[in-house]
Amino acid sequence: MNKFLEALNSGKILLSDGAMGTELQKRGLPSGACPEEFNISHPEIIKDIHRDYFLAGSDIVETNTFGANRARLKLHGFENRVKEFCIAAAQLAKSVCPDGKFVAGSMGPTGELLEPLGTLPENEAYDIFAEQASALEEGGVDVLYIETMMAPEEATTAVRAAKENTKLPVVASMTFELGNAGLRTMWGIDVKTAAEKYAEAGADVIGANCGKGFDEMIAIIKELRPLTKKPIIAQANAGIPEWIHGMSVYTETPEVIAPKAEELIKAGVNIIGGCCGTGPDHIKKIKEILDRQ
């Protein structure tokens, strides 16, 4: 059996990492630049970030490939470098991955709308995700993370492409917001529908990431837990960014999120981590909580 699934099935709660994007900005990624290109031009920075998370206690780190799909890279003129970026990113993370820990290949949305609402045909979206998933597998990742999905068609297409073109386990999460109609993605999908769609597409782990912080994430997981037998992932943002001195700053410090993370664990997550604005210090805090359990 895949070692990652083995670890997951052992019943231990796995600790994922925090944000890549905000860490890259801290280390000099210019705004507007292509983060995935850093896998080639600044490999030491990427390894440094992974290492910081492993040191903080992460069992899993995510590759710097959130936007490394053909559609997103096209914005930078890099549409022909998907394979190169993904393989490099996977190898960088693997090269600093200690024995017994894991590397997850991060896959985000295409940024385009699928037909019929948009112009991207489903089969093209499928090919886009298949290309990225295969390259990540070739680079040596242990698992794929499909994340920050909001549109149901795109989400399930990504999961199918990943399952059908690789031998890897697939973790799939969507981003929900609390509105008048309860917790929904920007495309109106509620938690129950998301869980069903992902399960149907073949995801091994389902859950939520990004969003408005840990409080909302607790609500999502509480709603999701009774709906599925699958393991659940939760990776929340460090609150909502505030604009301070011309920079967006996430306000929830490690101390602030600590009790919330504890509640999240109680709500029944199997993989916990952070999203935008969380750093190694947040992960360290969560690690302390997990160690106490």
Partner: peptide
């Protein structure tokens, strides 16, 4: 280690442990 050489300790440990 990079950039001087090509060996990350994590990798070496896996091979040599």
């Amino acid at each position: 280690p990079p950039p001087l050489g090509t060996v990350e300790l994590e990798e070496a440990k896996k091979i040599l442990d």
